[in-house]
Simulated assay, not measured.
Amino acid sequence: MSKVTVIGTGNIGGVVASIAAKGGADVQILGRDQVKTDAAVQQAGAAAGLVGDVITGEIVVLAVPYPALAEIAEQYGSQLEGKILVDVTNPVDFSTFDSLTVPADSSAAAELQTRVPGATVLKAFNTNFAATLGTGQVGDALTTVLVAGDDDAAKQRLIDVVTAGGVSAVSAGSLKRARELEAVGFLQLTLAAQEVIGWTGGFAVKK
């Protein structure tokens, strides 16, 4: 049985925890607000805790805003050694909503890997809206989680957790592809904000 810790109790965190639990994983949810954490736990059927508690998962999903990645990396430090860290963030400049905040040759995931070199960082879920993860559908297509990372075994472990929970997942290549995934996530957000697409829509992958 896989052990998954989700840090974050927003929409994405809650639905990822639910997918993992549905697939049979042992799930822990850590949040900053006890009420929100309890609500996410009820939705997913997971163990509850607060950020700062010991991480029990081998796979740790960081379902937090981009600025919180550095704080979590510093707070947990060596406890993240050997973990599979899943970055779901889109590092958007929300003051202008017109660019990403990371350098053109980098990504939020690459920055995270530098901060926690003893962990294996994956990029996933950032091109999916919570609603489409929850339903497993993007329009008439199946929802597909794109997973980027340099460790094929780690990617497969996450893909197995997601597919066991009823959602399609595929490799998107090395961690370098996180830059492109973040650009796609950013574009999708801007389209939804302009009501060009709905929050139940978005990009889909058809095989």
Rank of each mutant, 00 (worst) to 15 (best):
A73D: 15
A131L: 06
G165P: 07
T96L: 09
Q156H: 08
L100H: 06
V138P: 01
V196F: 01
V102H: 03
A70W: 06
L158W: 00
G201V: 05
W199G: 06
E81Q: 15
T56D: 14
G201C: 02
K36W: 09
V86C: 04
G31I: 03
T96Q: 07
A192Q: 03
I19K: 02
D152F: 11
A47Y: 05
A44F: 13
Y76C: 04
T200R: 14
A68L: 06
P67F: 08
G185P: 12
F129K: 05
A68E: 13
G57P: 01
A21I: 09
A48Y: 07
G166I: 11
A192S: 10
A47H: 11
L142S: 15
D93Y: 03
G173M: 12
I29Q: 03
R32H: 12
S18T: 14
A172T: 01
K207V: 07
Q28D: 02
L85Y: 08
D53R: 03
Q43C: 07
M1K: 15
V64P: 01
A47K: 15
L80I: 08
G202Q: 05
K83E: 00
K83I: 00
G118L: 12
V116N: 06
T190D: 04
S95A: 13
G24T: 11
K22R: 15
I84A: 02
Y76E: 06
T132C: 08
G201N: 11
I72F: 15
V170N: 07
I29N: 09
V170T: 13
T120R: 11
G82V: 09
V64M: 10
A148N: 05
V121M: 08
A108V: 00
T144Y: 02
S107V: 08
T101K: 07
